[in-house]
Nucleic acid binder design. Structure first.
Length: 858
RNA sequence: GCCUGGGUGGCGGAAUUGGCAUACGCGCAGGACUUAAAAUCCUGUGGCUGCAUAAGCCGUGAGGGUUCGAGUCCCUCCUCAGGCACCA
């Protein structure tokens, strides 16, 4: 009587056995004498929500688990860890909702996540597990903050920030969705001026861009990072301000940034942003302007500053602005041009001011048309192009058609004095050179990237380890006082003042200055949820046990980290939603740590692969409110962990989105069941006949050939993250295997084991059970050595035969003759169908060795 | 508007990188087992013409091109998804 496939009967047993036997412990070769390179295989670690593991998590983690198991069996030293990203708004908001302190709630959630991960058989080295909320971990996050502060990358500044009135906290620009809502709570965002810690990521803009070229990342993600950093080359040009109130010799300039210095002669105005220093000086009466104008400007600027960038940058909105009445001097023509203020100019980009070239910039044209500014054409598509300007309307004749638009492409210069006749490319060089010679301009580079606001006015984050002393300013706390622990509090909800709840705890706030010993106040802001994930991958690799007493933190860090065997990460798998933020921040930290001499590599993640989302059966996102959530616990209970793992790897390429399909899941269950039954039959055979003894059995040669092809395919596919086709190949093999089991011919024990081994990364439970129960192995299949495919050549190969490019027949050819063209021709012509088409015709024969024959009738 | 990916049966998707299009799975149809259903197993399954498991034609978003040969390369267009968007 053969056993049925009942995963629930053995899966739990193996979870315990693997743990007891230490099967997945990280092997750190003493002197890295192994010939194979280390493989650090990492998934983006989860925020442990109360809802437990999502089937989307299961997909990423199965992906890295398959890779880790594959590399382990292939003899590579593997680091495959897991931890918890538990600080931040989601955990805190959930805690507030549940009316429980996050400090109590988070460990419960973690325990549940850990249980589910073990249930799914993920081969983590659990000894390295930690949570970003462990004081022993955030001690180091705080220490790193201090190092960054000391190197001048962090400073505190009063700045208008995005502020979420619902979450009562300041936000980074990246946390604001395009519709002006908060990415976490989806509520509208306003502006508020708050003192904030600012991280100068912009100092690394060029390196963050430059080093992308060495990364093996998805093209789309690289592009998104490039766009986000947004480098553009151009010129900075100085326009002198003319005003009677300025003293003789006192010169004031407005600087603008432009990528098109070739259009300089077409400038008919300057526009500054409402935040521009000139506007402040006008309001402080530094410049003499008409009283009505001043009122108008004040009103306009106040309104603009209240608006979000998102509203200001709404493209559909009509442009507005106010003429300041001030004039600037054109650097090359000496003409006087008006200075306007308008909110379509962004204060933070470039110099916060632009030169207006209505004829060659769409926005400027729109603005000039509305306010009747002069339009001056200085670039033509080619020498003989025609254009006309009537009543502030500009038209170009393009391909015999008059079109009303600004001409924004490159072309030939006209009305540009000595530069007439040059191409735009030439003029950009020449005009910039001339300005440089006059000390009125220079070549420069601008970035879109903005500095990173690093403060959060919330409870559930790493306390910022800084103290404010009236005498000494901001001072980092002494390293012997690290970690600065987050106090357990009764009231952890944000304060109405917009401050962190820590500000309401006098025992926390009141302290002494680490420098002078005088009275001082602690910083009460906490770090954003990104902080912990900026270096967690480093922590996993550190040998966490070695610690010499009284060792300085810097020494300890260097000892554990600098020549660390496993760093950096070789394979990083996760969702594309982290394309910019997390990945950019982590790259930034690594570069800064490199500069501090704390790391010896410059990029954290060498290979990145995205995982596609798992949608519900109805093709919508899984959500409680839709009632379409699939719980991994339920699936495992009904089908076993192996089925769930296999299904999620099989449904589509790893990076594609999939919609849940219980039917397809059942298909994977059937496959595993068939594998189970095949080996049960072999077991029966082994007891009744000679199968497991040393006596030679007759093998099915075709099946052996198929097996070796399958091993080859699976080996290649796994290392290219093509899990779906690897599984398809194994299914194909099983289709044949199943038939052969019924016959007398068969596979040898060795070969039967090989198939189990290649299936093992996907279905670790089932394969382990068979490995030990059917084959009587004493050590885990997951520590066995990956099979090498043997070259088994088919005796005959099949070659398709085309006539005039259309398939007409296939012929079988003996392997020893397949490279003899004349033989192939002879065999092909013997084929009835081919004969029919070629009878009595002249033809030319094309033969691609071993691939195809094509007869062309001439 | 700009950037990046895609578009292949009823569905999810394969295709050795220019060489038998639709592997594998789901679904569907027919059959076996069963009093019956579920489960399981077997067979078939791109479309059209045909009694046909005869023969042939058409077929990878649309149109054109290169080639003995195109899902794959080139040009033009349509369309879907994601990202960015007054960045001067």
């Amino acid at each position: 009587m053969k056993d049925k496939y009942q995963p629930e009967k053995f899966e739990e047993k193996w979870i315990e056995a693997w743990e007891r036997e230490g099967v997945y412990k990280t092997c750190q070769p003493a002197n890295s004498q192994t010939s194979k390179p280390k493989q650090y295989v990492l998934s983006m670690f989860p925020y442990p929500s109360g809802a437990g593991l999502h089937v989307g998590h299961v997909r990423i983690y199965t992906g890295t688990d398959v890779l880790a198991r594959f590399f382990r069996m292939n003899g590579y030293p593997v680091l495959h860890p897991m931890g918890w990203d538990a600080f931040g708004l989601p955990a805190e908001n959930a805690a507030i909702k549940a009316k429980k302190n996050p400090m109590d709630l988070v460990p419960k959630n973690i325990a549940n996540f850990r249980r589910q991960m073990k249930m799914l058989g993920f081969s983590y080295d659990w000894e390295r597990e930690f949570s970003t909320t462990d004081p022993e971990y955030y001690k180091w996050t705080q220490w790193l903050f201090i190092q960054f502060f000391k190197m001048g990358l962090l400073y505190k500044k009063e700045i208008p920030v995005y502020y979420c009135p619902s979450c009562k906290t300041g936000l980074a620009e990246e946390e604001v969705l395009p519709d002006g809502t908060h990415e976490r709570c989806q509520k509208p965002i306003t502006r508020k001026t708050l003192p904030q810690w600012v991280f100068q990521i912009t100092k690394y803009a060029d390196r963050l861009l430059e080093d992308l070229k060495d990364l093996d990342w998805p093209q789309g993600i690289l592009e998104m990072q490039k766009n986000w950093i947004g480098r553009s080359e151009g010129a900075e040009i100085k326009f002198k301000i003319k005003n009677q109130k300025l003293k003789i010799n006192e010169e004031k300039f407005i600087k603008v940034f432009t990528t098109r210095p070739d259009t300089l002669f077409g400038v008919t105005a300057l526009v500054v942003a409402p935040e521009h220093w000139l506007i402040d000086e006008i309001q402080n009466s530094k410049f003499k302007i008409q009283k009505e104008k001043l009122e108008e400007i004040k009103k306009y600027v106040e309104e603009a500053k209240r608006k979000l960038d998102l509203v200001r940058t709404d493209l559909t909105k009509e442009k507005t602005g106010v003429d300041t009445g001030l004039k600037a001097i054109h650097p090359l023509t000496g003409e006087e041009i008006p200075i306007w203020v308008a909110d379509y100019v962004l204060g933070w980009y470039g110099e916060g001011a632009v030169m207006v070239v209505p004829a060659h910039d769409e926005r400027d044209y729109e603005f000039a048309k509305k306010y009747g500014l002069p339009i001056k054409v200085v670039i033509l598509p080619d020498k003989n192009s025609k254009f006309k300007i009537q009543n502030s309307k500009l038209q170009f004749k393009i391909q015999n058609e008059w079109k009303e638009e600004a001409y924004t492409d490159y072309g030939i210069l006209v009305n540009s004095g000595e530069f007439d006749g040059l191409t735009s490319e030439q003029a950009i060089e020449k005009i910039t050179e001339k300005l440089q010679a006059l000390n009125l301009g220079k070549k420069t580079v601008q970035y879109k990237l903005r500095d990173w606001i690093f403060s959060r006015q919330r409870y559930w984050g790493e306390p910022i380890p800084m103290v404010n002393c009236k005498k000494c300013g901001w001072q980092p706390i002494d390293e012997k006082d690290l970690p600065l622990k987050l106090p357990y509090v009764e009231s952890y909800e944000p304060l109405e003042s917009g401050e962190s709840p820590l500000a309401a705890i006098p025992e926390f706030v009141t302290t002494t200055c680490p420098k002078c010993g005088g009275p001082a106040k602690r910083e009460t802001d906490t770090m954003p949820n990104w902080a912990g994930s900026c270096w967690y991958f480093i922590r996993f690799a550190q040998n966490q046990k070695s610690k010499i007493k009284n060792q300085k933190l810097e020494e300890e860090w260097k000892e554990k980290t600098k020549n660390n065997f496993f760093l950096p990460v070789d394979w990083y798998l996760g969702g594309a939603e982290h394309a910019v933020l997390h990945l950019l921040y982590a790259r930034f930290w690594v570069k800064a740590l490199y500069d501090l001499g704390l790391l010896n590599f410059k990029e954290p993640f060498l290979r990145l692969r995205n995982v596609g989302m798992v949608l519900a059966e109805d093709h919508r996102k899984m959500s409680k409110s839709f009632g379409n959530v699939i719980n991994p616990d339920d699936v495992v209970k009904e089908y076993g962990a192996d089925t769930l793992r296999l299904y999620e790897m099989f449904m589509a390429p790893f990076s594609s989105e999939i919609a849940w399909s219980t039917k397809a899941l059942q298909g994977c269950y059937r496959f595993l069941k068939r594998v189970w039954e095949i080996y049960q039959k072999l077991k029966v055979k082994s007891q009744s006949a000679s199968w497991r003894t040393k006596v030679k059995i007759e093998e099915d040669r075709q099946l052996v050939a198929k097996l070796n092809k399958t091993i080859k395919k699976v080996t290649e596919d796994i290392s290219q993250i093509k899990f779906n086709t690897a599984i398809a190949a194994m299914m194909e093999f099983v289709n044949d295997f199943e038939k052969s089991v019924e016959s007398d011919k068969n596979l040898s024990v060795e070969n039967a084991k090989k198939f189990l081994q290649i299936l093992a990364p996907f279905a670790p439970f089932l394969t382990e059970e068979i490995w030990r129960e059917v084959f009587g192995e004493k050590t885990s299949i997951h520590l066995s050595i990956w099979p090498k495919p043997e070259e088994v050549e088919d005796e005959e190969i099949v070659i398709p035969v085309q006539v005039n490019g259309k398939l007409r027949a296939t012929i079988k050819v003996k392997r020893e003759t397949y490279n003899v063209k004349r033989e192939i021709e002879k065999i092909a012509l013997e084929n009835e169908k081919v004969k029919k088409y070629l009878e009595g015709k002249k033809y030319k024969m094309i033969y691609i060795e071993g691939k195809i024959v094509n007869f062309i009738i001439v």
